[in-house]
Nucleic acid binder design. Structure first.
Lengths: 258, 258
DNA sequence: GGACTGCCCG
DNA sequence: CGGGCAGTCC
């Protein structure tokens, strides 16, 4: 079975790319980020036409995450649910196709040292606490999303240019390794230990033309799913075409399960 | 020779309609309104590609009028030039193809009784004074534009719905008749004395679907040109297609002259 | 409804 | 650069 993650940067302005992509690639499960839409404004009809069901947590203007699947989806949680006063729609936790599937949109972090950066680090700590509290490394768990973390310099086309930016600081990379130590595995990297795979090119400064890419969209999976991993990749063509998202979809393929 | 007038409602967002329309219909002279662009931001290169030269008076956000032609254009005036402190770009007066061609964008007028309505009536009085001062009924003069006047109930699909709106008040119709009495002739109406011809359908309230149209875009011509009139019409298809202007082009055909 | 103006965000 | 927003205009 195939799982895909895509930061669409507004689901409404990406519908004309999303619908054909779903129809052409038919992943079993899709997680989306940056819907930039409230639940009531989500284009349910257009997605239903493709044969996908939807579970989402929406928000006006910013954030918003969803799980799409061709099988029924049971929502387990729509927030980190830790009592924090945080209105940002950045996580949805679902049961679908025999898996526990989570869509996450990790805060970008603005600039190192900013309030936004503190929020990013805090959010990653809260996510780790949420894993400790509600998940187990032995269950079939896949967390896909825009992590806003390039785990290693191998994940950055021009590491010197991105050194100490919020996508690459030692602190966020340490948080990433903490998640891996908990029992999550960077699926695409496990399949392609040495490959330069990028999932995001900045709209600004002609990032795409200069292939100034980073790998910041990931699937993190627990051991039971890591053992079923057979393939992984990036649909780079989605970053080309017109009116693209700044992110390309990242997919993984698991043996069995449909 | 053929003259066309079109309120494009932003020349930049209408380029993909304007360029093919110029290429397909090749009018000798085109007058445009609501460019919504400063001179420096006008898409000169794209228009030049079609073989047209341009004279324009631009303004940020609002108004802006132009004359396009495949022959050289000599600009005579870019305002009513009556000493009024009026920064709005609503008139350009040119010499082209042996004619005097003027592009006008008459103020809409908001609501009857409003300041905007007073400005509309005042602008029409100033236009009449400008005619008296700078033009003569015996010269070959054609004034095309968005007049924001439906001269008669015949020019309104649902006259009761538009009665006493700023497009139809007795006062603006009186101003219109004053221009006709000066020596201008409503060209499209002269060619089609009884026809219901509409040039504008409101974006709102499904104006197009209900064919709730009005004829507010006109060519006014002096006697020498009236005597050469052979045809007139509206390119209604331009109001359909996607991302249309709310106005359709209105054209007239003169015998001789190219 | 669909242009525009800023402005915020990544 | 390319999403979103509110506010203004027609």
């Amino acid at each position: 079975m195939r799982l895909a993650t895509w930061n669409v940067n507004s689901v409404r302005s990406r519908l004309d790319a999303l619908v054909p992509w779903l129809a052409a690639t038919r992943p079993d499960v899709v997680v989306l980020q940056e819907l930039k839409v409230q639940q009531g404004e989500f284009p349910f009809a257009e997605i239903a036409m493709t044969g996908y069901q939807v579970a989402l947590v929406g928000q006006k203007t910013y954030n918003g995450v969803a799980v799409l699947a061709r099988q029924p989806i049971a929502v387990r949680a729509t927030s980190l649910d830790d009592g924090a006063d945080d209105p940002q729609a950045r996580l949805i936790d679902c049961e679908v196709a025999g898996l526990r599937v989570v869509s996450v949109y990790v805060p970008n972090g603005g600039e190192p040292g900013s309030d936004k950066y503190a929020y990013k680090l805090q959010w990653l700590r809260r996510l780790r606490a949420w894993l400790d509290r509600t998940c187990a490394p032995c269950e079939a768990l896949a967390i896909g999303g825009d992590w806003n973390i390039a785990p290693d310099d191998l994940d950055v086309r021009y590491p010197a240019a991105w050194k100490d930016t919020v996508l690459c600081t030692p602190e966020v990379r340490r948080a990433w390794r903490g998640l891996c130590q908990w029992g999550l595995c960077d699926a695409a990297r496990a399949v392609h230990p040495e490959a330069r795979m990028f999932s995001w090119w900045d709209y600004r400064a002609a990032g795409l033309e200069r292939n100034d890419g980073l790998r910041i969209d990931h699937w993190l999976v627990t051991a039971p799913l890591r053992d079923r991993l057979v393939a992984a990749g990036v649909d780079q063509d989605l970053r080309h075409g017109d009116k693209p998202s700044d992110h390309a979809p990242v997919w993984i393929e698991l043996a069995g399960g449909g």
